[in-house]
Design a binder for these strands. Structure first.
Lengths: 215, 215
DNA sequence: CGTCATTCTGACCGGATGGTCAAACTCCCG
DNA sequence: CGGGAGTTTGACCATCCGGTCAGAATGACG
């Protein structure tokens, strides 16, 4: 509506509509199953118009993925702050659970992309993500050395966190089916979030007293 | 080779070859991305011959899925035996980790199917799986009442187990990339398996002494 | 060896889909 | 009001892909 300068408001408006529609369709159908015709229809535009803004389906897909990774990086920041391990981990897991709840489509696109062998985001995995794992892994190792955590390979812990939190987005259909056919309501999800945090954090936190630790 | 009676050996032989090729291709490309031509080529047969044994791509896909679910049910049996919770859970998680290691393709096809909204296995989810969750959920609840487990919603526990174990199959590419570009070797996987079991079981087992349980 | 069922396969077809294009339309600015 | 940049769109095209089919090859059996 308002008049913008450089990128005409009509342009960004339509681009955003297309990106939103594309995110939904890619999440539902996967890259191969998605059609530009359906994306265009859901964005309320003729197909030719979509191709005016995004030359190819692959290019559009890449733009969508970029948005997804940006959101992921935001949640990843919850791992900052030097606080007690239980607090940092709990906050991080909570942030990832919230992301799975609020933007499940992004998680699904990411999962689908990895399943295909990450043809479009291999670079992200090898640079940004690898660096992230290395730096936070060092933090985890420090906690272990300080006796605050059980001795675990940091990556194993990250994988468990990612797997569990993203499961609530990627497998939401299965979860809903096992919930009587209805998606978890806010209360049920909040409770699941609490329990996931409790189990994971409780699972890696060093036992309160070493002398009674089992095994 | 040998002469069989009812199903000619040539028939079952080719069917098996096609099913194996199909499992690989469906896992790599998803249902939409897979082509009958590639499946046939990988099975060493002309495309028309594939369609002689399996009328449609969807029919072939269903057959592959059936095999996947059968394998899943086998692993699910590890939840039997009335033994201490830690043992039963550990054995079950271990079985699922082994399955993820040995038949990652099956897990990927399942994941891809759920992502699409389970168009082909909705029935399985609503019957077999729902029953399984209900019966084992009852077991978990009994453990909780007996004070052996922390009070958790059984489904939350199952989701965490499924998510984590299947992650090692579904996200193997990401794991490999974060492992320096190489898949986990047997030793690394065995160690991961041990830690996953320790964290999950340790996370739900009731604290050794209630009087020092946090929170 | 003759006959019939099964298996094999190259050639083909129709529909779907990603992408193109030229002609129109809109809007801004001088 | 004139004109050019930016935007819109129906019509169109080439390719890919699932699936068909007729006829040939193969094998089983009396």
């Amino acid at each position: 509506m308002g008049r913008m300068r450089q990128p005409s408001s009509i342009r960004t408006g339509h681009e955003d509509a297309i990106l939103a529609a594309a995110e939904a369709v890619f999440a539902e159908r996967g890259f191969s199953g998605a059609t530009t015709a359906e994306i265009a229809a859901r964005a309320g535009l003729p197909k030719a118009n979509l191709h005016y803004y995004f030359a190819t389906k692959a290019e559009l897909y890449r733009q969508v993925l970029k948005g997804v990774l940006t959101a992921w990086l935001s949640a990843a920041e919850a791992f900052e702050a030097d606080a007690p391990p239980a607090e940092v981990l709990g906050r991080y897991i909570g942030a990832k659970m919230d992301l799975a709840r609020q933007r499940p489509q992004g998680s699904r696109i990411f999962a689908s992309e990895i399943l295909r062998g990450a043809p479009e985001i291999q670079d992200f995995l090898e640079t940004t993500l690898r660096d992230w794992v290395e730096s936070r892994g060092a933090v985890v190792r420090r906690w272990i050395e300080a006796g605050a955590l059980k001795p675990v390979e940091p990556r194993t812990l990250f994988f468990m966190i990612w797997a569990t939190t993203q499961h609530y987005a990627d497998f939401a259909h299965q979860i809903a089916t096992l919930n009587g056919g209805m998606a978890l309501d806010d209360a049920a999800f909040a409770e699941a979030k609490r329990q996931v945090i409790a189990i994971l954090v409780g699972g890696v936190l060093a036992a309160p007293r070493a002398d009674i630790a089992p095994e």
